[in-house]
Design a binder for these strands. Sequence first.
DNA 1: TAAGCGTGGCA
DNA 2: TTGCCAAGCTT
Length: 359
Amino acid sequence: MKQTDSTTENLLRTLPEPLLGWYRENARDLPWRHTEDPYRIWVSEIMLQQTRVAAVLGYYARFLAVFPTVEALAETDEELLMKLWEGLGYYSRARNLQKAAREITALGGFPDTYDGLLALPGIGDYTASAIAAAAFGRREPAVDGNVLRVMTRLTDCHDDISDPKTKRAVRAALAEVMPEEPADIRIFNQAMMELGATVCGPNTAPRCDDCPVSGLCLGRQRGTAETLPVKKTKKERRVEEKTVLLLKRDGKIALRKRPKTGLLAGLWEFPNVEGTLDETAAGAAVEAMGLSVIDWQSRLTAKHIFTHVEWHMTGYALTVRGDGPAELEWVDAAGLAARSVPSAFARYYEEAKRELEMK
DNA sequence: TAAGCGTGGCA
DNA sequence: TTGCCAAGCTT
């Protein structure tokens, strides 16, 4: 993507009109497209980072029902905030959302410029541009994975899209041709992403017959579209073995809070130890916590795959006596439901819920 | 610059 | 089943 390439620039000049026409006829009806409220647009943009629309819809409705304003979000407690994000992933997004809400409240209102938005925690180049354009009508191109895919195919660009230089070049090229009318500016980024999400998608052949700009597309013309974009391969995941303990005592189950930093920071988990322990070793680990084992119920294995690490878990459900370490929180069914336990523990969460409901 | 940070859907 | 990877940001 060379900004100085006049062929590319001429090609892109003819992009906005058919794109916007197509968008006005074919856009999906999504809740954040019915508002110009920066708060609602912001929340949607954060939730949508690296996350599919279908996964976001339910969370978005619940989140706004509980936090209808930036002030409500600024004032909430962490436990409720994380509960509303439970299962959505990338939990630092939720914490940054609240930090930013407090900054916005202190400022007396939303920043309405790219630079002002970029200064808020959790808002990077893409999100600052997306909000500036959709909420404030500013001419800021938002370049996400969809836009990079559409643009590299359109211009037959084989640069590595994981290189920030490529993103900067795409942004600069779009800045040259972005429309001027406020009504068009507000939907231009959405239209680019909509094309990437519904017509010119990843992991699949582009549906060029349905594309409003297939006539301009160099990737289609040259037959390279399906091989684009070019992306550097990522490194392998490591595997971690864990033994998860479902400790039951007096109709309650033990939870503990994860460390404030790192993976699943600050979320709740079932106590666990490194390595795959057999019953004898697991029993010894429980005794070492100052608890006495009364009874064994079940052994449950599970696997959870994160982006950069894979957990292989062996779990034991057992009845115990004693207090154990102070970090353990003994909860009933309501206590479990009120806490945010990540999906990585889903199999154990279900088992714990079942046992608490049986009592 | 590279690595850490979740989850679930789909080919 | 396995691998890819989605409306990215932070450090």
